[in-house]
């Protein structure tokens, strides 16, 4: 069996909504091997996004531990966690979440700028990635001048720019037509095969599920089957 890249140990997350506590995750023990395209499926409110946010270091668990490449990210401080998000993981969201005032190229450049990479190198690497996702001729366009599929490909390029070992995607095809969804999944498969990056994708979409190497189903805050 190949190396584990993500391992959660008794992971729990409780949200407090005023006086009511909502148990979003309970004792989740999940293991994802490096190089997988892991699909996380389940009904709404089952805790899929919570799990993804915890693995991505966007949120802190109430209990339990998360090991990424052997490092316990639940023990990291605010700054280290930001660094982890910058260099170790890439995020792709359902609604693309590009910065509306910046061009496609600049959006892809942001993580490099945050990492302190000099401008010329930034330009070159961002252009290369835009080429890889097939958008080199749209580099100077703002997000509102791009289609949904194009925006999502820009978002993928942005997620990949710092060569993360994991790409986390939350319903990446949720706002796309089936043709764009298919193109996106083919791109993901291609990137996975070429670079060996691990993808963890929360989805409802059968087009996505069919192309995952493994599916985890989550229900009522627990992993049901592996």
């Amino acid at each position: 069996m190949s190396r584990l890249i993500v391992r959660t140990v008794d992971l729990s997350k409780v949200y407090r909504r005023g006086k009511v506590s909502v148990l979003a995750l309970r004792n989740v023990n999940l293991q994802i091997a490096a190089g997988e395209i892991a699909g996380i499926m389940g009904p709404s409110g089952s805790g899929k996004t919570t799990l993804l946010n915890l693995i991505g270091g966007l949120d802190k668990p109430t209990n339990g531990r998360i090991f990424v490449d052997g490092v316990d990210i639940t023990a990291l401080g605010e700054r280290e966690l930001a660094d982890y998000r910058l260099k170790k993981v890439g995020f792709v969201f359902q609604f693309y979440n590009l910065i509306p005032t910046l061009t496609a190229l600049e959006n892809v450049e942001i993580p490099l700028a945050l990492a302190g990479v000099p401008k010329n190198e930034r330009r070159e690497r961002a252009l290369n990635l835009l080429k890889m996702v097939g958008l080199e001729d749209r580099a100077e366009h703002k997000p509102d001048e791009l289609s949904g599929g194009e925006q999502q490909r820009v978002a993928i390029a942005r997620a990949l720019i710092n060569n993360p070992s994991i790409v986390l995607a939350d319903e990446p095809t949720g706002d796309l037509d089936s043709k764009s969804a298919l193109a996106l999944m083919n791109l993901i498969k291609d990137l996975n095969r070429r670079n060996g990056q691990t993808f963890i994708i929360v989805t409802h979409d059968p087009i996505v599920a069919e192309r995952c190497t493994k599916i985890y189903t989550i229900r009522d805050g627990q992993i049901e089957s592996a």
Binding site: R85, L98, A115, N162
Partner: peptide, 16 residues
């Protein structure tokens, strides 16, 4: 606010 969330998600520190 959302833009701030995005920037933080892709690795911006509070300082940035």
């Amino acid at each position: 606010t959302r833009e701030i969330g995005i920037l933080k998600a892709i690795g911006a520190k509070s300082y940035d």
